[in-house]
Design a protein around this nucleic acid. Sequence first.
DNA 1: AGCACGATTAACT
DNA 2: GTTAATCGTGCTC
Length: 203
Amino acid sequence: MNRLGRDFFARPALIVARELLGTRLVRLEHGQRLAGLIVETEAYSGETDLGCHCRAGRTPRTSVMYGPPGHAYVYFTYGMHWCLNFVVEAQGFPAAVLIRAIEPVEGLDRIAARRAGVVQKRWTDGPAKLTRALNIDRAFNGADVCASEATLFCEPGSVVPDAQIICSARVGLNNVPEPWRSLPWRFQTAPGWLNATNPQAMG
DNA sequence: AGCACGATTAACT
DNA sequence: GTTAATCGTGCTC
């Protein structure tokens, strides 16, 4: 079994957000693999990060982020959307990495069915789009993604070179004060990276 | 008990 | 560029 383990997640949020790019997010559904290469992430770290949900401290919603790394933090927002994060850093320090976009590579038939009416390019190019495509909701909140029986986990992929990574401000923090609003804690692979350097990815 | 807002998306003009 | 959809969460009264 070749999966990202606890040690991978037990590191600073910025490092994990950067290194998750190019890895493969896998969701086992009735034994079928639905998967995509992670191409966009954001880091959220600590109660002092006023863009992080943990700015409000430990609450029922944020409690998962205070737990051990390598678990899923799935939250509900805007009355209809689910977003997937991985808990990072040491147990007791609240931090997580939001998965903002993936490039689908396995289980395209199931993904297409869940994203009916949408062109393929937009199947999973947003945090709430990929959770819908992979059927991820509150049932996964707190799930251990490093456990052998996990049905949601990450596998190592191709390493993305620094030159192919774009850093920018996190999205949607409209009422968050500076400097947090503008911190370059969003990581994306450059446009075309997948086709240019990973032509076999669609296998 | 009530309120304002949200780590978004899709459908508008 | 603007806006409705839709409800859990955390805060105030």
